[in-house]
Design a protein around this nucleic acid. Structure first.
Length: 730
DNA sequence: CTAGGGTTAG
């Protein structure tokens, strides 16, 4: 018997001949592979040759055909051939078909084939589970696994890696434990692949202790095992632990590959250890991996997070293929390091280039807006988000709450808060912190009760918010009680919590109690605690205790300008001018100089910045006329400047010409001449409000009948009708 | 037929 293969063009010229049997299957395979699948056209013609005797379609031949299918049409045709040949119940080939369908994205087709297959064996089950897992339908993958067990087919060592992968994505700890048990029952507890899967799974579920148990029991730790445990620690906020594991790994023969390096770089950027991060960067270069796109992302994130935005930008610029993650790393890096303008510029650039932002991108843009502090900008991004698919993302909404609070509108923050359906502890905490920032302590506490009512358990950050809220509102008793509530939730107070309590007690004048509290602390009091005590001493003019605190601070943190400023302020408040001068000398010896004060005000969407006595603005003359008018009206209203203390108070802006030329006063004057009567003025300044400006602003708000909202370095002040929301307690 | 990574809120 002879037959003809009739193919198109080039093929025809090569082979158009009659031949006699037997022809080896490999001959057909090579022909098919080489010619049929190089173009869809070739295949169409090939399948038309259906008078090929079936005996020559060996399994491996057909399998190779299936492997080379690139289109659903190809699979259909092959399937047709299998049916004709009576091979539709051939497990090997049908498994190939399921794999093939899955590989080209035809999950529905895979499932149809699976459904038509009677009595699937473990290979077939593995194929369908893998198909669902690869298509991110993890719940379905688990369902298939359950069904498989129900049909009493035993899973093997190839089944579990995909089942574990699905569990990992679902982050279901109970299910993980269940499956772990089944792994043991099937005697697969010692399989390396399965064990590595378990390590990664437990780590992602947040049960790093379980991951460690599996990891410690591993006989053969490959780079995958190490990467799983290192990244697991890092993903659970235990970067130090991750790096300790990396140290252990270094003592073995296992060499890191690029995926391991990604995890290690992440751990170093989490702890913001730029030096160590740089040494890993060196490894990357040594291994010739610097062009690996995912390492570019990691390095960008590392340098950006550590504040080296210029270096980060160089890596960012090296990335040629559009990748939203590297944009996210760069945008959030800019936003977190005081380059909000660049962050937003990049965000707009991304949109202009038609790269699709994801939830993380818009969240980073929100962070940038929060940093700018402009309510108008805040409304713009909120508007953008409300029209997008990102409006339901909990990360985005949490950032929005924080942003509105930082831009001065607790009301808008609370509106966002109300619209979130499933509020987690971070959402509640963000709102609590928001109230705290504005000195609305009672509302913060009410929210805390509502949160418990809703069955959400507070965490350490919730209490930071509550304690700062109490602090900003002078709620001593409430703060003290809340601090002791932490124990009920099993939350170990951190330095910040202790510092808040010291702040609360100290500001309210309970200096002895604050001191006792510090002495009884179970952990060594750090900079924040002594700093709180020092500033309390400054308020209450307790020089000896303040000097004691300052002494501690100077040994703990000798190059921080803030502590010297505080001590100097303490002396100034006690009118000890000679000691003020001594501190200044000390500062000069250490080569420290204080930050310049500046204030922002936003008028018609444009941000204006003023420094002390700033005359650089085009409308400077009008501004200074307005300042003088204000000064005159203040005097007429009986305002007495707090000249003496302020002049020596290094915390605030340097004395230049006159107190009324402090930057926020210039910003207020500019705001008054640039906006319609009655418009609220919103000002942001980098330092804390000085006592003189604070008193003056209260009176100005009454004289000009304006609401003036000032965000200083610590909190918000809402000035209205002669009073301030802080109740002069800040 | 199998495993590990990157950006993210208070």
């Amino acid at each position: 018997m002879a037959f003809k293969l009739i193919f198109s063009s080039s093929f025809t010229s090569k082979i158009q001949k009659s031949t006699a049997f037997p022809i080896p299957a490999s001959f057909f395979f090579n022909l098919f592979k080489h010619y049929c699948f190089s173009s869809p056209l070739g295949l169409d013609r090939c399948i038309e040759v259906d008078d090929l005797p079936q005996t020559y379609y060996s399994n491996s031949f057909l399998a190779s055909i299936i492997d080379n299918c690139t289109h659903k049409r190809h699979l259909n045709q092959v399937h047709g051939q299998l049916v004709i040949s009576g091979l539709q119940q051939n497990g090997f080939l049908m498994t190939k078909m399921v794999n093939g369908s899955s590989n080209i994205g035809q999950l529905d087709y895979a499932h149809k084939l699976f459904d038509k297959f009677c009595d699937p064996d473990v290979f077939m089950w593995n194929a369908i589970i893998r198909a669902y897992s690869r298509h991110k339908l993890f719940q379905d993958a688990i369902e298939m696994y359950r069904w498989m067990r129900w049909t009493r087919v035993d899973p093997d060592c190839y089944t579990f890696p995909y089942v574990l992968k699905a569990c990992t994505e679902l982050s279901d700890f109970r299910l993980s434990q269940l499956i772990h048990g089944q792994i043991f029952r099937h005697g697969l507890g010692l399989d390396g692949f399965v064990q590595n899967g378990l390590v990664a799974l437990y780590a992602k579920c947040g049960h790093i202790d379980c991951a460690r148990v599996v990891f410690d029991g591993l006989h053969d730790r490959t780079i995958v095992s190490w990467t799983s445990i290192i990244s697991g620690c890092a993903q659970n906020g235990k970067a130090m632990e991750a790096l300790r594991m990396f140290d252990k790994m270094r003592k073995t023969d296992v060499k890191p590959d690029w995926i391991a390096l990604v995890s290690i770089i992440r751990a170093y950027s989490d702890v913001e250890d730029l030096e160590q991060g740089k040494s890993i960067h060196g490894c990357v270069i040594k291994m010739g991996l610097e062009d690996e796109p995912d390492l570019l992302i990691s390095l960008t994130a590392l340098y950006a997070k550590c504040g080296q935005v210029t270096v980060a930008k160089q890596f960012f610029d090296q990335m040629e293929i559009p990748n939203v993650i590297i944009w996210n790393a760069m945008i959030s890096g800019y936003a977190k390091n005081g380059h909000a303008e660049e962050a937003l510029h990049l965000f707009r650039d991304l949109i202009a280039r038609n790269i699709k932002p994801n939830d993380v991108t818009v969240m980073s843009a929100v962070l940038a807006c929060a940093q700018v502090g402009s309510l108008e900008l805040a409304r713009w991004i909120d508007d953008y988000i409300s029209k997008s698919e990102h409006k339901s993302d909990v990360f985005v909404n949490t950032a929005l709450i924080d942003m509105y609070a930082k831009c001065g509108s607790v009301e808008s923050a609370s509106k966002v808060f109300d619209h979130i359906s499933n509020k987690d502890v971070v959402v509640w905490s963000a709102m609590v912190v928001g109230y705290g920032l504005h000195g609305r302590g009672l509302e913060a506490i009410d929210l805390y009760h509502a949160m418990r009512q809703a069955g959400v358990c507070p965490n350490d950050v919730t209490f930071i918010g509550l304690l700062t809220a109490c602090n900003h509102s002078g709620l001593v008793k409430e703060g003290w009680e809340l601090f002791h509530c932490m124990r009920d939730y099993g939350i170990e107070p951190r330095h910040e919590h202790y510092a808040c309590v010291v702040d609360i007690l100290g500001r309210a004048g309970y200096l002895d109690q604050a001191c006792n509290f510090i002495l009884k602390m179970p952990i060594d009091p750090g900079v924040s605690v002594w700093g709180a005590l020092l500033s309390a001493c400054k308020i209450h003019r307790h020089v000896t205790l303040g000097e004691y605190a300052a002494d501690k601070l100077f040994s703990l943190d000798p190059y921080n300008i803030g502590h010297y400023v505080q001590l100097s302020n303490l002396y100034a408040s006690a009118r000890m001018w000679d000691r003020v001068a001594k501190v200044r000398v000390l500062m000069r010896e250490k080569g420290l100089s204080k930050d310049l004060g500046y204030s922002f005000i936003e008028i018609n969407g444009k941000l204006e910045v003023f420094s002390v006595g700033d005359k650089s603005h085009p409308r400077a003359e009008e501004i200074f006329n307005e300042l003088q008018t204000l000064e005159r009206r203040l005097k007429e209203a009986g305002f007495v400047p707090h000249t003496e203390s302020v002049l020596h108070d290094l915390n605030y802006e340097e004395k230049e010409e006159n107190l009324c030329y402090h930057s926020e006063r210039i910003a207020i004057a500019y705001g008054l001449i640039s906006t319609a009567p009655g418009t609220t003025l919103r000002i942001t300044k980098n330092l804390r409000a000085c006592i003189n400006c604070h008193s003056a602003t209260k009176l100005i708000s009454k004289l000009v009948d304006r609401e003036i909202i000032v965000r200083d370095s610590k909190r918000f002040h809402h000035f209205k009708n002669g009073t301030c929301s802080c109740g002069d307690y800040w």
